[in-house]
Design a protein around this nucleic acid. Structure first.
Lengths: 131, 131
DNA sequence: AATGAATGATACCCAAATGGTATCATTCAT
DNA sequence: ATGAATGATACCATTTGGGTATCATTCATT
């Protein structure tokens, strides 16, 4: 239904913000207002981004997050994969749940190629593009 | 996340079945096995299809459902609209919930056009194509 | 007229996903 | 030592998706 969830939305805002400012480390407290989300929730998202390698983090006073990759190389498609486990047009194409009609299904191939195109389009958008 | 939900899936199966058989009326009991879904659930879906004008229904003994439109003119995009209220890539583009960055958002336009292309692709697939 | 096969409408219900909060542990500059 | 910051994780509330149950209505058949 909805392809981009809130996590991706907030993550994009935060990453764009960091790309524009380009500071050595931005704490959550310094982003949450502009991203317009609660501190704890943004923090959870930033931690996911850290685990996925999009940002690196510095603990302790004066710490925070900073981009770990070039903004021109952080693609929306990757964010979607990392934060919400990808996209699936239906269960059959990419959910791994093949239905009983698998072999005869004329819809499957079409959906699969639609999904492919969608992913390509998402991959074509980078944080730099949005900054 | 998932663009086609179960309703659309089962609806397509039922409509394709009806298009192939082309009987004056097919009762739910005569479809549920081949569609592989419980009777009550399929019935609920068929009722939605009836209300949306895709099929017409005949009550009483010997009744059932039949296509109300040419199979070549029943488009997947319409089914998605009728059965799950369309697609929205995110809340901002088509959910009516504009975020605080509305005017400055560089992502919005791109998502909107992606959504448009997706709908076009869905609209290009008809029940006849799948029958 | 009675019967039974069929849909119409609607009210539930359960499980999973989404969106978000709370808490405690750890690290580090000062 | 202190306090600012993240790491990890558990928890919670609401919504959505998928599905069942029930009663009312219609109609062919007898």
């Amino acid at each position: 239904m909805k392809i981009l969830n809130r996590d991706v939305d907030y993550a994009v805002r935060a990453l764009v913000l960091m790309a524009r400012n380009d500071r050595p480390a931005t704490p959550v407290a310094g982003m949450r207002e502009e991203v317009r989300v609660s501190g704890p929730f943004l923090r959870k998202i930033m931690q996911k981004l850290q685990r996925s390698g999009f940002v690196h983090s510095v603990k302790g006073k004066g710490g925070g997050f900073a981009l770990a990759r070039d903004p021109g190389n952080i693609r929306l498609g990757e964010l979607v994969s990392a934060l919400q486990g990808g996209i699936r047009l239906n269960d059959c194409v990419s959910g791994g749940k093949l239905c009983a009609f698998h072999s005869a299904c004329k819809l499957r191939g079409r959906l699969a190629s639609m999904e492919g195109r969608l992913l390509e389009e998402l991959a074509a958008i980078t944080v730099k593009d949005l900054a």
